[in-house]
Design a protein around this nucleic acid. Sequence first.
DNA 1: TCTGGGGTCCTAGGACCC
DNA 2: TCTGGGGTCCTAGGACCC
Length: 396
Amino acid sequence: MPRRILHIDVNNAFLSWSAVYMLKHGSQIDIRTIPSIIGGDESKRSGIVLAKSPVAKKFGIVTGEPIYFAKKKCNNLQIFKGNFNIYREYSKAFYNILIQYSDKVERFSIDECFVDMTDVMKDKDIVKIAYEIKDRIYKELGFTVNVGVASNKLLAKMASDFEKPNKVHTLFDSEIQSKMWPLNIADLYGIGKMTIPKLLKMNIKTIGDLAQSDKKYILRKFGKYGNMIWDHANGIDNSPVEERNQPPKSIGNQETLPKDLYTKEEIEKVLAQIAEEVTFRLRKYNLLGTVISVNLRTNKFEDYSHQKKLLNPTSNTKEVIIAAKEVLKEMELKGPIRQVGLKLDKLTSSEEYQISLFDEDSNNTSHNKLDKLDKTLDELKAKYGYTKITRGSSLK
DNA sequence: TCTGGGGTCCTAGGACCC
DNA sequence: TCTGGGGTCCTAGGACCC
């Protein structure tokens, strides 16, 4: 039995959500109907297009481009700042509608979800349900979505990306050749600007070209990544819809500075400030970080980083600041610094870590002590390897 | 002329171990 | 002069996504 997967994608999410919010709070204009964008702050050098209205799109404005360029393309462009607290609210509201249809809903990003309908379909018509979901979201929340219907996540995602906005598209297995293969290779999920020229050089221009190429050849050329893109081109994807909310695997902040920095003293100050935010988020999730890395970007857009494993995982601000400074000390400044980043990796749950250190049971019997000793030794073994520990003692 | 911020996963080389 | 093979862990960097 094939699976039944939906991918729901909010159309121009940030701009739509801002539009709905503004209308609700007395705005006379719907910014979706005028040339408008949601953008960063040019004076803070974070001026890129985060979302665009359909009208702005007609002027050739694309997401991610500098606002400076967007303005040149359309001189009466209206620019609005994003409001992420509002976006998170709409994202949650949209998710809350989806979980009424299935337990298996994966929040893929702030504005995209996958829904696995396989177990709840029975004899119902999946396309009809897709339309119902789309229309309900519009009616109840005021913004439009695209819904992709397919037998796996990859195909559902490709389908939702067809014609926009406010559309339902199917991409069933029998439709792969007619609907997906004629598309440009750049339209395939997972293929970015570095891979496109390589594929073009190999005379692979469409998704169908890739699908029909020799898999061994693609594998030799691209390794594991080649395996993935070849499978994608052929509509193969077995990844499950992950309904659980997984804890993050890394937490970090980057900051583009209003002005380039030239000394480590200045960079240290920025790092300290970022450390406050990062450790706050770690504590919010009850997580501790084990590996700390500092990332620098020069004014020529050269990125480089250094990292260091901490002796003990931490979410303590002061410890993170000290560690960040130590890492920075080992780095050279390759030029004027435009952006500073700090990230913690290899996150562990702080509860588990506490329990491993302090026996929560105050009953201090010898049995407990032995348990603890075992635990400690086990941890040492796990960390350093059994042989090293025995060897160390036998060396005596 | 200007280019964000938050992530995930993968690779390749070096150190070290048996 | 020729010099294994397997493995893990660590680090730096790259590609991709929204």
